[in-house]
Design a protein around this nucleic acid. Structure first.
Lengths: 343, 343
DNA sequence: CTGTTAGCGCGTTCAA
DNA sequence: TTGAACGCGCTAACAG
């Protein structure tokens, strides 16, 4: 391993000078700089990041903590963060939290031991006080996909209410007047927002959504293991209630597909018999048949933005306060919603 | 930040003693150890990994380099590696290579600057010489999903030939006698192996696969951007050749789904009219309809194994040479293959 | 069993 | 414009 001393010796200068050349800072004579630069390249010298982190008390590290990286939604967060980091000299370090608040704290702490000051945290279940105390210690901590009013300027999140409204509006424009919702009932606030958005959209059109048209289950959250089973139960439940609807609004794409499958298994056609709309716009939404009409969640862009925000918070003087970072979803029209002629 | 000196001062001992307690090594008096331990916990002391890495010349880091983390297959590699790392004190650092050999080398080098000695590399296009010279410098470099004969003991890979054979065998048992293959034609050796496997399977049954039943395209590899378009073209091509077959063997699940969609768009039913079989067993395979019969690729287990292997190579004395690490695929039976009664 | 010393590679003073 | 000296937090070698 070639060190700064090696370069200095060969170049006939002091380590300090090499250091100045490497960092492009400080006054160095023109000729001297060129010579040192040349030798650096010849010897293939690369600064030791550990030594740097030690002396400067900051590692150029972006930490990512998400529930499970093999899920495309979270993989996209990692992808976006890496994309943004690559523009700088920062590296990405990651940990899965498995949605366990304790593991989450473990993950964060172990990242901190590495001098990681920049972190993107996807936490749905960590309690606000814990997160607040973490944020006080970690200057570059940013929350993705969660809104904490007391730390609004660190939150990069999506307007789920708008997403719900978008779904209701779109269905209305396609001629639908009676809709149903299949979602979860957990601590996760996203689905509450999405449902409220749907209700708002309908109210604005002078329509209402009967409570019987909403299917929720107490014992499940978005990370339920057997999604298909859950959806099959939910669809059966909905049909057994004997309420009327022409479209189902799903909590997300995964559920939408589970619902389409359940309907398929019951011999019902989507969208001919029943329309279905999703949320997230995962890859799978364009790969299933019928291709899923859904609400696009710009997660890669959000992760890139979150990473840049985090970097800005630690690198620049100006505080990024007084505003939050709210992204807007959009609708992606595909084939799972039928156009109904309004009489 | 609380340092080893702080703990030493409060405990009334020397930093070395604290160090011994922390690492659980060396001789420390029973009472002394207990006291130091208590103070460590009270003060919330955590060793600075950068200082450790600096002095020991090795960081406890597992680096992962894959083409693109937002794809579930690669996300699963990261997931598996993290899962294995979490059992130790190692952290995971990751980079996307975007299938670009230059970016790949960049990624590896920047990982090395962090003292990362353990790396899991998913490289399909890096040339053998480059990889060999990398391997000489990086003691814990492991290749996943690639076989390099000269570095066999560092390769954790899948028996693609067996996978192809498995597909052919299964189809044969379901009564199929005439099959078609839709795949790619790039430098990637996987598809060649898989096709050879299919041929082997058929040969063993006394059957042959006419070349006209194989559709490949020169200008595309597994990372083709518009998979659906590619599959639609491929299916049209196959049908226009007017060859006879009852089942299509796809290169992977993504293609299989593209093929099913193309058939669907042409008004053909899977599996009633044509059977389809995939490869990989991604999440999507069980979520599409008909659910996809496919060859299971145990990628998470392989990534875990690769990580442990890498750790073993750097931590333990015994060399892990003289054998390679070949995983076997299995078949997962779902709904996309029709059972044909053999007359 | 415990403490002292030295040094990992680097950035940051402060003198020259 | 350049160099020498110091210390970041820790471990290893040695001394006691």
């Amino acid at each position: 391993m070639v060190t700064i001393k090696d370069v200095a010796r060969v170049a006939g200068v002091s380590p300090s000078t090499v250091s100045r050349v490497v960092r492009g800072q400080g006054k160095v004579g023109k000729k001297c700089r060129a010579k040192v630069q040349k030798i650096i390249e010849e010897m293939g010298y690369r600064p030791n990041t550990n030594a740097r982190a030690l002396v400067s008390q900051r590692a150029e590290l972006v930490g990512i903590v998400t529930p499970a990286l093999h899920k495309p939604f979270f993989g996209s967060i990692a992808f976006g963060a890496e994309k943004a980091s690559r523009l700088t000299s920062y590296q990405v370090m990651m940990r899965n939290s498995q949605n366990d608040p304790d593991l989450e704290v473990d993950a964060i702490n172990s990242l901190r031991e590495h001098g990681c000051e920049n972190m993107i945290l996807h936490s749905k279940f960590g309690d606000a006080d814990t997160l607040k105390s973490l944020a006080d210690k970690i200057p570059g901590l940013v929350f993705i996909n969660r809104f904490l009013p007391e730390m609004a300027s660190r939150c990069v999140w999506l307007d789920n209410v708008s997403g719900g409204r978008l779904a209701a509006d779109y269905l209305f424009k396609q001629g639908h007047r009676e809709m149903a919702i299949v979602s979860f009932n957990s601590n996760n606030e996203d689905q509450i927002d999405r449902i409220n958005g749907v209700k708002q959209g309908l109210t604005a059109r002078g329509l209402t959504l009967p409570e019987a048209n909403i299917v929720l289950r107490e014992d499940a959250g978005p990370d339920v293991n057997n999604m298909q089973e859950y959806c099959t139960h939910a669809v059966n439940e909905l049909l057994s209630r004997d309420v009327s609807f022409t479209a189902i609004i799903a909590y997300n794409d995964e559920m939408a597909i589970g619902i389409m499958n359940a309907l398929f298994d019951l011999g019902k056609n989507v969208p001919e018999d029943i329309s279905v709309i999703g949320f997230d716009d995962l890859d799978i939404a364009q790969k299933c048949r019928p291709a899923l009409t859904t609400i696009h969640y710009p997660i890669v862009e959000m992760a890139e933005y979150a990473t840049k925000l985090s970097l800005q918070m630690t690198l620049e003087k100006e505080e990024v306060i007084g505003r939050t970072h709210l992204f807007m979803p959009t609708i992606v029209e595909r084939k799972s919603v039928k156009k109904i002629d309004v009489v």
